[in-house]
Design a protein around this nucleic acid. Structure first.
Lengths: 183, 183
DNA sequence: ATTTTATGTCAACATCACTGACCCAATCGG
DNA sequence: CCGATTGGGTCAGTGATGTTGACATAAAAT
């Protein structure tokens, strides 16, 4: 599997092939180490409350999109009803997440964070905020833009669509106007 | 928790604060979706062999650093002996990973991939290679550089040291000369 | 009135991680 | 040489997170 002997492409070609492969193996390393350490801080904080990463994800996405339905949350997280129920039910029982019947469709449970839930989500967010800010500052704005482009590229079509919906929800929630033709 | 009313900083300050916060929340989203979809392809392939992501990580890092000891692998993965044993022992039994006693210290088990293990690792790598290449091509080389800078920044000191060691091992393994003074 | 949808729930199971305890064999230090 | 340390393996028990399949209920849609 290794290009030990010079092939038809010669030394230069071999080196290019090596760079491609090594570049991509490096990406695997970076994603493994980077994602692990990115989540480590919040994980430690969550453990003190007998919660896990799954609870954090629910708090994060409910906070990001208040009024989200259970079905939408399932689609975003990409897990089953049972898996979600195991974390969502305790979060509701312990007063972190509030449920309200949908006005148009009363079968729906519109989820939102209670003040207690907002406080916890913010605490977890601050931990990751510090960590990401450090990385962003060290890398600089151009690198941050590149990071975002590549991460978007790593997402599948479904995830991209969901991300767009999240971004729209975030801009609505803070009164930021979307780009308007002729604006 | 929301900046509903204009504070001392006024509208401009509020918007800056929003941008910072939204930027960082976006980073959370990107890392969640991106990492999930990055691993999804290999996960599906592994499931057919009754293996999981943990097996893949062992194959990946053993392939990346042939002759690695169990202790070094434990340090890289950041898991316990028992957790590693549960995936490593079957990989050895099924002939994916070979063990050799260390020449200097015969207590050590120097791990390497068998041809069977190399083939499986390569198959899994090709899946992720395609996925990452697509993202890299779409984003362009400048973005890729930025991605790498940010991911490195997201890593802790330990992980950075381990990554450096991996990169040195990779360049040794392919005969790539390190930068030399006056070269 | 029947069917579909949104949600919840039960039982059973697999993976991947953990802790704590204990073991062997090899190496190291005095 | 002997005792301590180190590298590695293993057993028992636990927990978090995910899965499938089946079933239940209430509201909505046809």
């Amino acid at each position: 599997m290794r290009e030990e002997a010079a092939g038809p492409a010669g030394a230069a070609g071999r080196n290019l092939l090596f760079l491609r492969e090594e570049e991509l193996r490096l990406a695997q390393d970076l994603l493994f180490f980077g994602y692990r350490d990115f989540t480590a801080g919040a994980d430690r904080s969550l453990a003190e409350l007998d919660m896990g990463r799954a609870h954090h994800r629910v708090l994060h996405f409910v906070g990001r999109r208040p009024g989200i339905t259970v079905g939408e949350l399932l689609a975003i997280l990409g897990i089953t009803k049972q898996s979600l129920g195991r974390v969502l039910t305790p979060l509701v029982e312990q007063g972190y997440v509030a449920q309200a019947a949908g006005r148009a469709d009363r079968r729906q449970r519109l989820l939102s964070l209670t003040p207690k839930g907002e406080a916890l989500e913010r605490q977890l967010f601050e931990l990751q905020r510090e960590w990401v800010m450090r990385a962003y500052r060290e890398a600089g704005p151009v690198a941050v833009d590149g990071f975002r482009r590549v991460m978007r590229g790593l997402m599948g079509d479904e995830a991209r669509a969901q991300l767009e919906r999240l971004e729209r929800a975030a801009s609505r929630g803070t009164g930021t106007a979307p780009p308007v033709r002729g604006g």
